[in-house]
């Protein structure tokens, strides 16, 4: 049973394949250098102006502002592991921060590659809802700041590949069956032909982990925001979702017993192991997630598995332990957490 069933809320669409959807808008203040050429004072000025412009969004009771320059590397790592900031934002130097909604449905990165990157996040395939929220945020800010805008190139961004709308839609897809049936390359090729990027679990520059793939539009110029959204939703993403479902059914038809064995074997290892590296845990959790979605495993909740993908990361384990952990200590803490959470 999912948390949505328990609370009587509607189940987010396509949750069996789509972990989350996201819409992002990149903006820069006019009259200031982009972040990588800005002085510390200029970056501080960006923070002050953006906080003021996005006051209801950034500074409300349900939103927390995190000054990334002053928090610990571990706190930055946890934010990164929760997909609230990028690796670049965590690792770079200088004044920068992020506003995070309590329910983590929204985050605003300030002074990452661009002055402002506004994100809205929803479970399942709901990019329209994400876009509405992020657009509302952009409109609210527009009344208080002047965004850098060029009549021909649209909203100006540090990397010209984001120019124009500055809008990127993405979906985090769980594609274990396409991986098992070796069909994933077809998806990659089809996505490339449709100007969509396929990235790993942590977005740009990251590898797939736990058979998660982030699909997003590469083109941001020459189409309206609605056209970009329409293309994203009407072409490949629902197609990949159906393709993954077909592959899951094909695996069941081909050899149900072998699939059941694989799923239960991985669950048993997760419930028993005393040490576990993160890659192994992600891989085995992915198989268990597949088993839960195909109803091969009773009494394991999908949201429990979804949450574990984050909780087993080393930053989260160290935060939970309240101290720095060596790699062997992390592996032991991870295995202990998995045993606790998945105990039958």
């Amino acid at each position: 049973m999912t948390s949505h069933e328990r609370t009587g809320q509607a189940e987010p669409p396509d949750l069996d394949v789509v972990l989350t959807s996201r819409a992002r808008i990149a903006r820069n203040l006019s009259g200031l250098p982009f972040v990588h050429r800005a002085t510390a004072d200029q970056r501080q000025s960006v923070i002050s102006r953006v906080q003021l412009a996005l006051e209801p969004e950034c500074c409300s009771e349900t939103t927390t502002w995190v000054d990334l320059e002053s928090v610990s590397p571990l706190q930055r790592r946890v934010l990164y592991e929760r997909h609230l900031i990028s690796r670049q934002h965590a690792d770079q130097q200088g004044p920068r921060g992020v506003a995070v909604a309590q329910d983590e449905s929204m985050s605003v990165m300030v002074n990452e590659e661009d002055h402002v990157r506004m994100h809205a996040l929803s479970p399942g395939l709901q990019p329209h809802a994400c876009f509405e929220r992020v657009l509302a945020m952009d409109k609210a800010a527009e009344g208080a700041v002047e965004w850098a805008f060029h009549e021909r190139w649209g909203y100006q961004t540090a990397c010209p590949t984001n120019a124009g709308t500055g809008v990127r839609f993405s979906a985090m897809l769980h594609l274990p069956a396409l991986r098992l049936t070796r069909e994933l390359e077809k998806v990659r090729h089809a996505a490339k032909d449709l100007q969509l990027a396929v990235r790993g679990y942590y977005g740009e520059g990251s590898e797939s982990s736990g058979h998660f793939y982030q699909v997003s539009n590469q083109i941001t110029l020459g189409c309206t925001e609605e056209e970009l959204l329409d293309r994203f939703m009407s072409t490949i993403v629902p197609g990949i979702v159906e393709y993954e479902r077909s592959a899951r059914q094909a695996l069941l038809r081909r050899d149900r017993l072998a699939l059941e064995d694989r799923v239960h074997r991985d669950l048993a290892i997760l419930r028993s192991a005393r040490v576990m590296k993160v890659d192994e845990a992600m891989r085995r959790l992915s198989t268990v997630r597949l088993g839960v979605c195909l109803e091969l495993i009773p009494n394991v909740a999908l949201d429990c598995i979804n949450g574990l993908f984050q909780m087993i990361q080393s930053g989260h384990l160290q935060q939970q332990a309240g101290k720095s952990l060596s790699p062997p200590e992390s592996q032991a803490a991870r295995a202990e957490l998995l045993r606790q959470r998945l105990s039958g």
Binding site: N28, S30, G31, L32, P33, F34, H36, R37, A148, H150, E151, R152, W153, G154, Y155, Q156, A158, C159, P160, T161, A163, G164, T165, Q195, Q218, I219, T220, L221, G222, C223
Partner: peptide
């Protein structure tokens, strides 16, 4: 790019690059 003004300063070079990166998109 260094700042919004770079778009005009290096208009020709940046324009070629943007159009190529944006699959031929020539205008917002």
């Amino acid at each position: 790019l260094g700042c919004p003004q770079c778009y005009d300063t290096f208009e020709e070079a940046i324009g070629i690059m943007i159009e190529s990166a944006q699959a031929g998109g020539t205008r917002h």
